[in-house]
Amino acid sequence: MQYAGAVSRLIGELARLPGIGSKTAQRLAFFLLSEPPETAEKLASAIREARERVRRCSVCGNLTDLDPCRICTDEGRDKGIICLVQDPRDVAAVEKYRGFKGVYHVLHGVLSPLAGIGPEKLNIKNLLTRLEGGKVREVIVATNPDVEGDATALYLARLIKPLGVTVTRIAHGLPVGAHLEYADEITLGKAMEGRREI
């Protein structure tokens, strides 16, 4: 069905967002048009404000409206432990756990041997600058446990270990509440490798 130019453009822009197909885009567009004008204005101003104010933290690379970000300036955090994550969303995920009191470094991607994505595309130079001061004792590589995440972890270990910093990898194994009989071989293998004394 053909829509008026402005409606069609709105649907087109919404359909460019991840996870939104043309049907959902139409539904969202008609919701916005059927609501009072303030709804659309609030959404537009929230998007504009976030886009103008949010940028990368000059220390850790996380998305922030303050530079350096709140985590980097928090005096209660241990600056000697850096948790390396591939995406700002992973910072939020680790923060949910509440038990980690160190700081973060966001790589903004992962190395991919299969796609040919090399280290020059990641936020690695800033990380090495942070490690130069000699105050960092440990780097925890918390990239996803898949081919790309493991490749990144191996590469960073090779790069960081000569600087005299301990490099650790988050443990891999069974999710809480899972049953052994349903676990796959890789997960069980990793769980056995990473076993610890109780």
Partner: peptide
């Protein structure tokens, strides 16, 4: 080859 280029880059 992407992976071989990646290896050289690394």
């Amino acid at each position: 080859s992407g992976p071989l280029e990646f290896l050289e880059k690394v």
